[in-house]
């Protein structure tokens, strides 16, 4: 109980929110919009999981939103050029991995601070895309939306992919040695090195994985409508980071797990629609989002202070 206080308290807050919705706005639980919302959120969850790995490793990445847009548009253009969908999928994942590798090389190889590296790649990707695409939507051919399957099947695949990523990461972080390496490097890189782990390689790998997951997420998002908006992914990095920290992953590295991330993500993802259902005026959105983030971390801070006394 004590060990998982943060995960449990966030889950508690989520349940409380859902309960009050069940009482005041039962429409929230209508199956169709609920499934649509989950499917729309699934790609963001995949990115958040990748960010969680990077933060566990005591790094950060704020370029994912821009990379997400670059992958989406590239995959979209390939699909629009009538190439088979698997080609677009592979290209998107590869491109994401390459983008992640660039961040990883500069961070782990050259030794630059990740927040600065990804700040630079964030504007570079975003403005590069603006220069080439100029904001024009990419219209996809028929047969791309929902992978050419009926909607329910497509939604199933998208949600299934997110679940698979979540389970795989949960398993790897808990039971595989590479997963434990991530915690080790995040807790103390020098100690990890002395223990025979290669911190640079682990850090590099984590960035590449985040990039690849971003590319995958881009495809999972792409198939949900017949068009790609090149502005997509704006602010995605902040949403993902907020979900990760609310979910109890410590920015000082080495502490947290994906289940907490899932809880934090769902809590934040539910708030905005909940406000619509509860008929709260839209100009409260951002203040409430900010207050929830602060409450989550303050609660944790207060508790730790008590424990330390």
């Amino acid at each position: 109980m004590k060990r998982h206080f943060r995960e449990l308290s966030v889950t508690g807050a989520l349940l409380l929110l859902l309960l009050s919705l069940a009482i005041f706005a039962p429409n929230f639980f209508e199956p169709q919009p609920l499934l649509s919302r989950l499917t729309a959120a699934a790609p963001k969850l995949v990115v958040a999981c990748g960010i969680a790995l990077v933060i566990l490793c005591r790094q950060i990445d704020i370029s994912v939103g821009s990379l997400f847009a670059v992958c989406s548009v590239s995959a979209g253009l390939l699909a629009a050029a009538k190439l088979p969908l698997p080609v677009a999928v592979i290209a998107s994942v590869t491109l994401g991995a390459v983008g992640g590798a660039l961040n990883g090389a500069l961070v782990a190889g050259v030794g630059l601070p990740s927040i600065v590296v990804t700040l630079a790649t964030m504007v570079t990707w975003r403005e590069g895309l603006r220069l080439t695409q100029q904001g024009v939507f990419v219209n996809l051919p028929d047969g791309v939306q929902w992978f050419g399957l009926p909607m329910a099947a497509g939604q199933g695949i998208v949600c299934g992919l997110a679940l698979a990523v979540l389970l795989a990461l949960a398993y790897a972080l808990r039971f595989l040695s590479v997963g434990r390496f991530v915690y080790a490097v995040g807790s103390d890189a020098e100690a990890a090195r002395l223990a025979g782990i290669r911190p640079r390689l682990v850090t590099f790998g984590v960035f590449v994985l985040l990039g690849a997951l971003t590319g995958l997420a881009a495809v999972m998002n792409l198939v949900q409508s017949p068009q790609v908006d090149p502005g997509t992914g704006r602010m995605l990095e902040l949403e993902a980071i907020a979900a990760v920290v609310v979910g109890g992953v410590a920015v000082s590295g080495g502490r947290g797990n994906v289940w907490g991330v899932l809880a934090g993500f769902l809590l934040l993802a539910c708030i905005t629609p909940a406000l619509t259902y509860l008929d709260v005026k839209p100009y409260w959105d951002k203040a409430i989002q900010g207050a929830v983030i602060l409450l989550a971390i303050v609660a944790d801070g207060v508790r730790r202070r008590k424990l330390n006394r």
């Binding site: 729309a40 409508s225 997509t232």
Partner: peptide, 18 residues
């Protein structure tokens, strides 16, 4: 919707049910 198509889609989904 922050001038984003995807966000507009989510907002519209919510509006339709709310």
């Amino acid at each position: 919707c922050d001038d984003l198509k995807d966000k507009a889609q989510s907002e519209a989904t919510t509006l339709l049910s709310a």
